[in-house]
Design a protein around this nucleic acid. Structure first.
Length: 779
DNA sequence: CGATCAGTCTTTTTT
DNA sequence: AGACTGATCG
């Protein structure tokens, strides 16, 4: 009865929680207790008589939604919270669309295409138009389509939009609009929506069907939106429509943490919220409960370099804490080693657990050197992001069967498994089916069903017929059996499970286990009733498929009890916090990304990203960068990131050498051979080697290949030397060309080109030192 | 038809 | 360096 859940709030937080009516904007600085405010506010609404069914709460990740629901339940001490409409934009809209999709000609259990499926459709269309897919890159075209949808521009509008047409002309891809048009029609024919459709179609539904709009306007009397700074125009318009009647809209966000513009998000949504409604109340949460003063100082300094922010002053009562440790290494591998050594040492000296550490990088590709070094130290780790469980090949293959069972129009799924496992339906046949389907304007599946009418004969016809019968038998089964039982049957009938079981390689074993895990997850799903008690029987398969498509890696694998070091991109770390954070790869071209330094807007977004990275840390923060690293197979020399210059020297500790076990960062510069790590990396293949393959107890990292990818090098101790040290007259070794002598040298200091005489490899060759790997044999 | 191999191309972040 | 594609051979 008593509202003692209000007791733990500070004044600002309480004000936000108590403001229930009218438009409200909460500017929530990093670590300011945003989730607490959101959940308490929902609880407070419910305590004040608002029915959970009338509250819509949109979050950025599924995990955040789940967490909020649990916390509301805890505050209220009841399970009423299960009736809240809470989830990501995409998952909530998918659920709403299920009810009304037929109004727009889609099946209610429409398939949701993930980015891979969507790109595949785009590619098919590009090929059908006989366009060169090297000019019309499916990726680029798809991104363009995606951006259009997120701005609510349909194919018709796209093709008459002067500005967009100009852009496509300039990129010499004038037919992009045409592809867009065909893409939309093809998805429709396939009974499928892509990620962006979940927003676009939702908008069209509300716009095109006033009764539906009225229904939801009435239903959602209170709307809350988290991470508002990362919403796009489509989301903005939908929210505006839904909230138009009651105007009880509460948005929460932090303009300083807007990092998703590449996905169509626009920071303008939050900057202009005050102008969108009359009498907007603004509450700023400025007290940070997460980080030390040192960390917060750095964060504030960094973000102050951006222009046009909502004014705020983030402060904390926490201790001063250690200075930020700034560490420079020679190479990316040394960076990895330094981080792993430091983790080992901190565990030893300060009794940190593995789970207290997080390594944050700008791009997924950077994980490699950390994986290697952590393995060498036998420190268990887990990579978040990248492929989600459901995007692994073996899982996607299996799921493709379920998809085609649930929706016979799903051409992408069909093409994926029509010949997996091999059953004699090859490329030529698929091509033919495709052409018939397009000509007759029927689905791929229908052509298969009526294969004899289209002139297929002999073995091919038989193979098709058997396939069709098998899929039909699964569909029949679905009437009396749940999704799990059908899935098990699929595994049996197709022979997939058996095939994987018989593959005794490490990868094969992992794949087999993954499929078993998939079956378990289906079982769990079929045995758990939905939130609003929806009956699951016949529809369950379609709903299951829709849900898993919207899951990300970070959503489902976040078991707090596993004690592992976490690795992820900064984007993926949004909303999380860790006692010790390593922010790595602070180099020009990498962070800020070389693709984002050409406009003020892009650069500022990179800076916000850095701000996000810094504010993830609770007590200790390391920032690292390397003089050189391999990128796309080439050795690159990098300048330190410009962001580092923006941090006042007084907040930095540059003396940290890394782990204390060995000084891995012998300050580059002059002197020839240095590099403490030069030798331990490549224990010659035959050498007795210590823990050559540690970490058996690893928490099953994703299926990664080759633990110790040893290059088959001419010399056992081959090491690429720093180009800066090379001079005319030196004897050198090249991985491919063998031994040679440098006869002359040219080019700019940072891009030197050596002419090398290789007696055994056809004489003189010009070698770009930044790219090729040369080792100095004799100076 | 399908598996293997060499040659080509990429080059940010993700619901 | 790694993924992907196209060509070649069984």
């Amino acid at each position: 009865m008593s509202a003692n859940y209000l007791d733990g709030l500070n004044d600002r937080q309480r004000e936000a929680v108590l403001t229930l009516q009218g438009p409200l904007m909460i500017i929530a600085g990093a670590g300011s207790g945003k989730t607490k405010v959101l959940t308490t506010r929902i609880a407070h609404l419910m305590r004040n008589g608002v029915d959970a069914f009338n509250i819509l709460s949109l979050t950025f990740t599924n995990k955040a939604a789940k967490e909020m629901k649990e916390r509301v339940e805890k505050i209220l001490g009841s399970n009423e919270a299960r009736n809240l409409y809470i989830g990501t934009f995409h998952s909530v809209f998918a659920r709403l669309l299920r009810a009304d999709a037929p109004k727009m000609g889609y099946p209610s259990d429409f398939t949701i295409y993930d980015a891979d499926d969507a790109k595949s459709v785009v590619k098919t269309i590009i090929n059908e138009l006989n366009l060169d897919d090297k000019h019309y890159k499916p990726n680029l075209v798809y991104n363009r389509i995606s951006a259009a949808k997120n701005s609510l521009i349909g194919p018709e509008a796209y093709q008459v939009d002067y500005y967009l047409q100009q852009e496509d002309q300039r990129a010499s891809r004038p037919l992009t609009g045409k592809i867009y048009d065909m893409y939309v029609k093809r998805c429709y024919k396939n009974g499928a929506m892509d990620f962006d459709d979940l927003l676009f179609k939702m908008y069209q539904l509300l716009k095109g069907f006033p009764d539906v709009l009225a229904k939801y306007q009435h239903k959602f009397k209170y709307i809350m939106i988290d991470e508002y700074q990362d919403t796009n125009p489509a989301q903005y318009e939908i929210v505006k429509l839904l909230g138009a009647v009651h105007e009880n809209i509460c948005v929460v966000g932090d303009d300083a943490q807007s990092i998703y513009s590449f996905r169509g998000a626009t920071i303008q949504n939050i900057l202009q919220f005050e102008k969108d409604y009359d009498d907007v109340k603004v509450v700023k949460l400025e007290q940070n409960y997460r980080s030390t003063k040192s960390i917060l100082h750095v964060a504030n300094e960094v973000i102050s370099k951006n222009k046009g922010q909502i004014e705020k002053n983030l402060w904390t009562d926490n201790v001063e804490g250690d200075k930020i440790k700034l560490v420079r290494t020679n190479t990316d591998n040394e960076e990895g080693k330094m981080v792993a050594d430091s983790i080992a040492e901190l565990k030893l000296r300060n009794h940190f657990a593995n789970r207290d550490f997080c390594i944050l990088y700008r791009t997924n590709a950077q994980s490699r050197s950390f994986e290697e070094s952590l393995r060498r130290q036998a420190i268990p780790y887990r990579i978040f992001g990248g492929l989600s469980f459901y995007q692994r090949k073996e899982i996607k293959d299996f799921i493709a069967y379920l998809r085609i069972i649930a929706n016979s129009r799903d051409e992408e799924a069909l093409k994926r498994i029509i010949n997996y496992p091999v059953r004699g339906i090859g490329k030529t046949t698929i091509e033919k089916v495709s052409i018939f389907a397009n000509d007759q304007n029927i689905t791929f599946w229908e052509v298969l069903e009526r294969a004899n009418e289209f002139g297929f004969k002999g073995g091919t016809l038989e193979a098709i017929a058997n396939f069709v019968i098998m899929i039909q038998s699964f569909r029949v089964m679905l009437d009396k059996h749940n999704a799990y039982e059908v899935a098990v049957q699929v595994g049996k009938s197709t022979g997939i499970v058996k095939e994987l079981f018989n593959d005794k390689t490490t990868e094969g074993l992992a794949r087999y286990e993954n499929v078993q895990e998939l079956l378990n997850s289906i079982k769990e799903f079929t045995e758990t009733p939905t939130e609003d008690g929806e009956l699951l029987d016949d529809k369950s398969l379609g709903i299951y498929l829709q849900q898993i498509t919207l899951l990300t890696d970070a959503d489902n694998t976040n078991d707090e009890n596993s004690d592992v070091v976490k690795l992820m991109t900064i984007h993926a770390s949004k909303g999380l916090e860790f006692p010790v954070v390593f922010n790595v790869g602070l180099e020009e071209g990498l962070f800020p990304s070389g693709l984002s330094i050409n406009s003020r807007e892009e650069l500022e977004e990179e800076r916000r990203l850095f701000y996000v990275a810094v504010t993830r840390a609770k007590s200790r923060l390391f920032i690292t960068y390397a003089n050189s690293r391999y990128r796309f197979g080439q050795l690159q020399q990098n300048e330190p990131s410009r962001f580092l210059e923006e941090i006042p020297e007084k907040y930095l500790d540059r003396s940290y050498a890394g782990g204390g076990l060995r000084n891995s960062a012998s300050m580059g510069g002059g002197g020839g051979a240095s590099w403490g790590t030069m030798f331990d990396k490549r224990k010659a293949p035959g050498a007795p080697a210590g823990p050559s393959r540690p970490a058996q107890q690893e928490p099953r990292p994703r299926v990664i290949s080759s633990p110790a990818a040893t290059n088959h090098t001419p010399s056992a101790n081959f090491t690429a030397d720093d180009p800066a040290n090379m001079e005319v007259g030196m004897d050198v070794e090249h991985q491919k060309f063998g031994f040679g002598k440098i006869t002359s040298m040219e080019g700019a200091p940072n891009n030197r080109i050596a002419t090398v005489m290789f007696p055994k490899a056809g004489g003189e060759k010009k070698i770009m030192l930044n790219y090729a790997k040369l080792m100095i044999v004799r100076q």
